[in-house]
Design a protein around this nucleic acid. Structure first.
Lengths: 339, 339
DNA sequence: GTGTTTAACGAAAACGGTTTCGTGTTAATA
DNA sequence: TATTAACACGAAACCGTTTTCGTTAAACAC
């Protein structure tokens, strides 16, 4: 087991000082051609690599970014991570992923673990519990320490920082409008309680589309589940209780399950019931029939988040100007709506 | 912006030495009750938290573990990450996720980035390119440096380290046997080239099950795609070319897509064609019809991997004994096979 | 009054780098 | 020949901790 070689080792072996070795490896003009070659050859031979931790301690830069998200099994979040990874890696940064599992406490603990020097900045999406409690002190503490934060998707206006979201209201509007244009008049909505910022916005878009088309909003056609968690029972009984010819769901799972229930009731998709979901994941693509969705462009969102964060991290000036980037959702038409 | 407070700051403010502060905060017996209280109160007031980087440098322990996987959008890998996170977090470790995107070069680069002090050990699953090239020098280098490695799912016997896999051969066997017991005789297999360790093993199980039941292995009923990537064209034309009454697929996407093609051909599932896939993901659960799968217990796998790694990291003794843990796959019966 | 123990604290090294600021030697210049 | 500039290198500080090993002064034994 050949342990890692350090500057000190090289210095001892070559009978020069540590500073000389350090400079030689950096090709400093201070060092003679001879010495540089000697040192560099030796370093190459023994595969010297500087210790990241030591460098981090010196420059107070870790080249790590912390990503705190509620969940990793949801397709949307995985695509965001992929986007973050892509950009961050290209810039020489590593990504530390922490899962809050929708829990406020875990979110706080994770952030505290990372905020003590482990990372240069945070990219995060709030847990549902945090959005419900509206307690953002952990975020405030971090930003007050000067650690840059980028919030994406599930954000709050209580915190001054960069933000990246998609226009969820527009997404809801777009989807609902499409259903209306296809002749649907009794459009149901399966969503979650309003504390989830995205659900709220999507619901607003849904309502606006109906109103713009002179359709009334029938509250009985709206099902609000407590969380994004699947609840087959409630969805099933919801469909028993209403009259509908289309369904808009705030995620793809609700949507695909709605299709199943509809099919079981002998309804035809999209003729009898058209369905649109949110999130352009594997599920939508490979469901039978395939599902029309509002695409959230997670990967793009991740890339932009990473870019904004790294820009802040690497900018010297301490400007306190924050921007919110709003991405446009797009509708991906598939077989669950009429072509 | 109140910047982080350090031991030095406390020492200066309280007019004691840095060592005294450090000891006081650790409740050392060396320090008087008075001083300890004073220091601790001050530290609490200013919310002192030790700098992780400095501690890492000192103990040569980062409390970070590096996870290098080919892909994060595949459900299986996300569940593994979740399992790793769960165990690692409970033990006070952070998880640095790197994606190789099935590329050998990226795998190497990622490992090199992390191997210079950023992490205490690796948990990884090989990229397909790595398995194809059979070049494991990057792994050898890391293990020779004494950095513990745990390989899961996509492993190699070339490297001496802990490993966690499921019994893929048994999985293939189990699935095929089930189809046979349901009266199927013309069972197709959609898999990838043999260099992918898991595909190879699953294929072996498939063959063994056929042979054990005195059925011949018809090579024309086996489709080997180059990678786990979806190739709709080839699957579609494969089904045109063969006579079959069941399909076994090495992932859920191939399986769900097979179902779609079958349905489009007017075949009934499971009566005319039964389908089984690998990976118990969202897709299988919510597909129409729902898909019978061989569950790989990714979360469990992640937990075990993390446990094995952390055990090695924290064990003082430098034993060179490695174990391979083999998890048993289980069949999750759904509507794509006969109940 | 001398020697020894003990309590309470500080100095300094160490982790592995980077960087500033000397310093000694040689060669060019006055 | 004396002065100076350029060159090549080393010493030491620094990043923020931990930890070992003094050191000082008071308390105690004799």
């Amino acid at each position: 087991m050949k342990s890692k070689i350090t500057l000190k080792d090289i210095a001892r072996e070559l009978e020069v000082s540590i500073s000389t070795v350090s400079k030689a490896l950096k090709n400093s003009e201070e060092i003679s051609r001879d010495t540089k070659e000697k040192v560099q050859a030796f370093a190459r031979l023994y595969n010297y690599k500087p210790n990241n931790i030591a460098i981090s301690l010196k420059n107070k830069r870790t080249k790590n970014i912390g990503v705190v998200i509620p969940d990793i099994v949801h397709h949307f979040f995985t695509t965001v991570i992929r986007g973050i990874e892509k950009y961050a890696n290209a810039k020489g940064y590593n990504v530390i992923v922490c899962l809050s599992e929708e829990s406020f406490d875990k979110e706080v603990i994770n952030m505290e673990m990372l905020a003590n020097g482990s990372i240069d900045g945070f990219i995060m999406s709030l847990s549902s519990e945090t959005q419900a409690k509206k307690d953002y002190n952990h975020l405030k503490e971090v930003t007050e320490q000067g650690i840059p934060v980028v919030l994406f998707d599930r954000i709050t206006n209580e915190i001054d920082c960069d933000k990246v979201i998609i226009d969820d209201k527009m997404g809801g509007y777009l989807a609902t409008k499409t259903l209306i244009e296809q002749g649907k008049r009794k459009i149901a909505l399966i969503t979650t309680d309003d504390y989830l910022s995205v659900s709220k916005a999507r619901g607003e878009g849904y309502r606006k589309a109906l109103i713009d088309s002179n359709l009334e909003v029938d509250e009985s056609r709206i099902l609000k589940l407590p969380t994004m968690e699947m609840d087959e029972e409630r969805i099933r009984s919801f469909f028993e209780s209403i009259d509908f010819d289309a369904v808009l769901c705030v995620n793809e799972i609700f949507a695909v399950y709605s299709m199943r229930v509809a099919l079981e009731k002998g309804l035809k998709i999209p003729e009898d019931v058209a369905v649109i979901g949110f999130t352009n994941g594997l599920l939508s693509k490979y469901a039978n029939p395939s599902l029309t969705v509002v695409a959230q462009h997670g990967e793009k969102m991740g890339e932009i988040s990473a870019q904004m964060l790294i820009d802040k991290v690497e900018s010297e000036k301490e400007e306190e100007t924050f921007q919110t980037k709003i991405l446009e959702p797009t509708l991906v038409l598939r077989d669950s709506t009429i072509n």
